[in-house]
Design a protein around this nucleic acid. Structure first.
Lengths: 149, 149
DNA sequence: ACCTAGTCGATCAAGTTGGTCGGGATTATA
DNA sequence: TATAATCCCGACCAACTTGATCGACTAGGT
C-alpha cells in the first residue's frame, strides 16, 4: 500500500537535484538538509541511484551529485520502479510470483488489481521531475510574488 | 506499495463467505481450502473481521462463519481500510503522521499522492463483494456453460 | 456425555526497514 | 605536495512487521 521511506527520500533527493540541474554538483549534506533526509542514509540512496544511471557524482573538493538525466524526461514512475520494483497493489502481478499464485488464472480479484495498477501508473508515469520543479516555482511566485522588488 | 498477504487473505475469505451468503455457516477449514489460505492463520484473520462486524461465527457442531453484511453493500475498500488502515501511497496523508511531516505544507509531491489515493479509492470503493461473486459466476458460465446438462 | 468447531494467548523464525559507523579513496586548490 | 573537502564502501545493528504455528480451552448440538 505504502511507498517505503527510502523511496520517498529517493524522490525528494532527485527532485532537489532537478531543481539544481545545470548548476554544478550539489553536496550530499546540502541535499540532506534541504529535504530533511538523514545524511548517512542518503549516501546509500544516492549510491543506488547512481548505479541506476539517474545521478552522477564528482568526488573530492567541490564535488557532489548532479542529476544525470534531463528532468523533463525523467518520470516519478521510473524512479519508483527502480527503488521499489514493479508497481502494483499485489505481488502476484509480475515475474515469478505470478506463476506461483495458487489461484492462477481464476483469481476474481485480478481485474481489479490491474485496474488499480493502471490508474497508479498513469499518474506516476506522467509526472516528470520538471513538472514538479515548475509547480514549486509557480507556488513560490504565488506566495511571494514580489520577492525581487 | 503492496497490500499485505493478510489483507489479501481477508479479502479472499470475505469473498468466499459472500459466495455462500444465505446458506448457513461455513467452516474455517472449508474457507481455508477453497481460497488456499493457511488454516491457523485464517483463524486469526476471521477473528479480526468478526471484531469489525464483517462476519459472525457460530460455535459448536455445524458451526462456522457467515458474512454479517449484505455482499451488495460491502465494498473491497471497507475491508482494506479495516485491515490496513487509511488507503494512500504514503503515510503522511492522514492522522498524526500528517502533522509530523518535516515538509508540512510545502511538499510538492502531495498533490500527486492525493491524485493516486483518489484513483485507488475510486476503484476499491466501487467494487462490492457482490460484484466479484457475480463476475465469477459469469466466468463459470462462460467456460462451462453446460455443466448441468 | 461426546464430538465438533470456534477462541484465545503465547510464541516464533525470517525478512524488511531505516538507519549508523569507521575508515578509505579521490580530487581541487593553495 | 600538503590539505581539506567530499564521495565511497562494506559491515553492522535495533526494531518492527509478516506470516505463521501450537496447545489448551469453551461453547453448541445430538
Amino acid at each position: 500500500m505504502l511507498l517505503s521511506q527510502k523511496c520517498q527520500y529517493a524522490l525528494r533527493a532527485s527532485f532537489h537535484l532537478a531543481k539544481c540541474y545545470g548548476q554544478g554538483p550539489v553536496r550530499i549534506a546540502d541535499v540532506a538538509e534541504a529535504q530533511a533526509i538523514p545524511k548517512r542514509f542518503l549516501e546509500v540512496i544516492l549510491g543506488q541511484l547512481k548505479q541506476g544511471g539517474f545521478v552522477a557524482s564528482h568526488r573530492g573538493n567541490e564535488g557532489g551529485y548532479v542529476l544525470d538525466r534531463d528532468p523533463s524526461g525523467l518520470t516519478v514512475g521510473e524512479i519508483i520502479r527502480f527503488v521499489e520494483g514493479p508497481i502494483g497493489p499485489v505481488g502476484c502481478m509480475a515475474g515469478d510470483a505470478k506463476e506461483n499464485c495458487p489461484l492462477r488464472g481464476r483469481c476474481v480479484f485480478m481485474p481489479m488489481w490491474e485496474q488499480v495498477r493502471d490508474q497508479v501508473e498513469e499518474v506516476y508515469d506522467n509526472t516528470t521531475l520538471q513538472d514538479l520543479v515548475e509547480k514549486e516555482r509557480a507556488q513560490e511566485r504565488q506566495f511571494a510574488p514580489d520577492y525581487a522588488i
